[in-house]
Amino acid sequence: MNVWQFMLHHHAEVAELTLQHLWLVAVSTALAVLIGIPLGILIARRPVLNKPILGSANIIQTIPSLALFGFLLPAPWIGERADRLAILALTLYALLPLIRNTYTGIKGVDPAVVEAGRGMGMTDSQLLWQVQLPLALSVIVAGVRVAAVISVGLATIAAAIGAGGLGEYIFRGLAMVNNQVILAGAIPAAGLAILADVSLGWLERRLSPR
């Protein structure tokens, strides 16, 4: 039985695991957007916070994913359910590209344009919402894209703590020494990664100024 026959035969399970996987990635990326963009804005406006915040996000990135899952296990409420745990870990990993891209996006806006806004009498928040964020948007979306693609890959490891997703097949296949089963997890995961990359890449180009 080749991998395609396997997937066809287990199509209901493949679909369920793919949806689980998508759920983990979507929720964690959304949370990272909600947290990372404000943090990126914050450090663009308060340079003193730049080092501590970017530094922390950087350090989180260096923690091996399995270890991070382990560290978070004792956390109250979060540790109770594997999917919560996985989402938290994935969110933490996704923060760095979002904070960093929001920051560089805002800093990359032509200073002359920002000064023009000031000269017109715009307040700081009018500048942020009407000038800086719109002009930084494509760079921020590029951060979302990086975060989402990384998340699709990392989420396979979430199966190790029982959070489900396409990692189930990969771990099961490893245990069974069965390449077909591994591929039944790896192929849809790769598909999701390409989908995220292409769709967000398209959005990024749509939003880029000029």
Binding site: V113, E115, G119, P134, P209, R210
Partner: peptide, 12 residues
């Protein structure tokens, strides 16, 4: 009113 050198219009 401020007319900026090299214009300074908002590109977006």
């Amino acid at each position: 009113g401020y007319v900026i050198q090299e214009v300074g219009l908002f590109p977006h």
